[in-house]
């Protein structure tokens, strides 16, 4: 028994010294956590989860609620699924959709296929929609996200969800080891920024004639650079007379680099 205890003690000491060396004898490096996967795990998703994704995109990345809200900038979408059929039969309809899903999809990527009366671009007599293509540039929803939003809208409208969860959508920005998300190319000019961020939706600027926000065509004569910069970064800090608070997104400061911000401010200040 004495031998046995001695041997056991010896072995335990050896193990302990190995463990101690591994813990204290060498520098500790914490391995990097697995890269965050932005892409959707579609294969393993239930419909409820898919709808939840759609809701998240609708309220977040998609920036849909910027206009599709109770302020009347764009039609409300809670009943869109139930009126789609009548829309497709409408004489003014220019699209090719044959089902609800296709119709909604089309209205997201080709918004001008049908413009609800009174919501068209100013001067276009409701033939052209002010809405951007959600799959392109500034919003950049993936095919899966578009479908998820449709699923969400169907669910919202209280009808049966007929969207199928895609299994093999091409992945954009696949495994990004650095996890820095999608890196966009920097904007080249202030015009490009205004175009991409769809400022003209609400403001009068250049050719655009939005009416939700102050006229920017001669803003440089009225406001200095500091005011403009603050108005972009924190729009609610001071509301121009005659306009509502909480209309302008307050995320522009996050979306633009410092260089781009200065480019935009310089441009606006130069509009006199």
């Amino acid at each position: 028994m004495k031998n046995f205890l001695q041997v056991v003690t010896f072995s335990l000491l050896v193990i302990a010294s190995f463990a101690a060396y591994a813990s204290f004898g060498i520098p500790r490096i914490k391995p990097a956590p697995p890269p965050v996967e932005e892409k959707l795990d579609l294969g393993a998703m239930t419909m409820d989860q898919f709808i939840a994704v759609g809701e998240k995109v609708f309220n977040g990345k998609g920036t849909c609620t910027l206009c599709h809200n109770s302020m009347g900038r764009a039609p409300m979408l809670d009943k869109v699924v139930s009126i789609s059929d009548s829309r497709m039969k409408d004489a003014r309809y220019k699209g090719e959709a044959t089902s609800i899903v296709e119709y909604i999809r089309e209205s997201m990527v080709k918004p001008s296929a049908f413009v609800v009366a009174g919501f068209g671009k100013a001067g276009s007599n409701d033939s052209e929609s002010p809405m951007p293509d959600v799959s392109g540039g500034g919003i950049g929803m993936s095919e899966a996200e578009v479908l998820a939003v449709i699923a969400y809208l169907q669910d919202l409208g209280g009808v049966e969800v007929t969207v199928e969860i895609p299994t093999d959508v091409p992945e954009e920005s696949s495994d990004d080891e650095e996890g820095d998300g999608e890196a966009r190319a920097p904007y080249e000019s202030a015009e490009a920024i205004i175009e991409e961020l769809t400022c003209g939706m609400c403001h009068m600027i250049g050719e655009e004639e939005g009416e939700m926000g102050p006229d920017l065509r001669t803003i440089g004569a009225l406001r200095d650079k500091d005011y403009l910069r603050r108005a972009i970064i924190d729009p609610n800090a001071e509301i121009a007379e005659g306009f509502d608070a909480d209309m302008m997104p307050d995320t522009l400061g996050d979306d633009l680099s410092a260089k781009e911000m200065e480019m935009l401010v310089d441009y606006l200040a130069g509009l006199k």
Binding site: P27, I29, D175, D176, E177, E178, A183, A185
Partner: peptide, 19 residues
């Protein structure tokens, strides 16, 4: 304190540069 840097860290599978 001693800072340990891995001089040849494992590279990513792919790299984004020049767009």
């Amino acid at each position: 304190p001693v800072e340990l840097r891995s001089i040849h860290p494992a590279p990513p599978a792919s790299l984004k540069a020049y767009g």
